[in-house]
Computed example of a mutant assay.
Amino acid sequence: MSEIQTINGKEKMSINIGIADQHRKKIAEGLSKVLADSYMVYLKTHNYHWNVTGQLFHSLHEMFEEQYSELAEAIDEIAERIRAIGYRAPGSFREFSEITSIEEDSDQPDAMEMVRRLAVDHETILRTAREVLPACEEAGDEATIDLLTERLDVHSKTAWMLRSHLE
């Protein structure tokens, strides 16, 4: 049964979802990194969608749109999972910049370099997501494991498709 606690002079309902506080915190921190990486790749992919040129313009323009649309939905799901386990989801560019593993562009790459960079970025998200799994398994947090498993599948497939353009 959840209780009401007073924190900083405000009443707040405690969270009792069957996951210990220390596990929820560790999972939320890991998910925040996945969220930041995902958001940064979303921005980069959207930028590439707008700015791609060359012989492969049409196919890459459409592929990038599919990818950033999928990422937009995923970002929402990740942030909502962080909230569901009782933590604030980071939501500003500054916050994302501080915790992301994704490198921001400092130039305007050509089409094939865009593809290469996105392949590397999706592999980075895969590694970030895998880092959170042990904490989820230890806590018995099946919902987050399910979310991360789906993300692993999507990013693995996306990285493969991007790498295939480079062969």
Results as ranks from 00 to 15, higher is better:
60 L>V: 05
61 H>N: 10
62 E>V: 12
63 M>Y: 13
63 M>D: 11
63 M>C: 08
64 F>P: 03
64 F>R: 11
64 F>M: 11
64 F>D: 08
65 E>M: 04
66 E>Q: 13
66 E>A: 15
67 Q>C: 06
68 Y>H: 07
68 Y>I: 07
68 Y>F: 12
69 S>Q: 15
70 E>T: 15
70 E>C: 13
71 L>P: 14
76 D>M: 06
76 D>R: 07
77 E>A: 15
77 E>L: 12
77 E>V: 09
77 E>W: 04
80 E>L: 09
82 I>D: 02
84 A>C: 07
85 I>W: 08
86 G>D: 10
86 G>F: 07
86 G>S: 11
87 Y>V: 11
88 R>W: 12
88 R>K: 15
89 A>S: 15
90 P>V: 11
90 P>F: 03
91 G>S: 13
91 G>K: 04
91 G>T: 07
92 S>V: 05
93 F>K: 09
96 F>I: 06
96 F>W: 04
97 S>I: 08
97 S>V: 04
98 E>R: 02
98 E>M: 09
99 I>C: 01
100 T>M: 02
102 I>S: 04
104 E>M: 10
105 D>K: 12
106 S>K: 11
107 D>W: 09
108 Q>D: 15
109 P>D: 14
109 P>R: 09
109 P>N: 08
111 A>L: 11
112 M>D: 06
112 M>K: 07
113 E>S: 06
116 R>V: 02
117 R>Q: 10
118 L>T: 04
122 H>T: 07
122 H>N: 13
122 H>R: 11
125 I>C: 05
125 I>M: 04
126 L>K: 07
126 L>W: 00
127 R>C: 07
127 R>Y: 02
128 T>A: 05
128 T>E: 01
129 A>N: 04
130 R>W: 01
130 R>I: 00
131 E>V: 01
132 V>D: 03
133 L>P: 03
133 L>F: 01
136 C>K: 00
136 C>G: 01
136 C>L: 03
136 C>A: 10
137 E>Y: 01
140 G>F: 01
144 T>F: 00
147 L>Y: 03
149 T>I: 09
149 T>R: 11
149 T>G: 14
149 T>W: 07
150 E>G: 15
150 E>T: 08
151 R>H: 08
151 R>F: 00
151 R>E: 03
152 L>A: 03
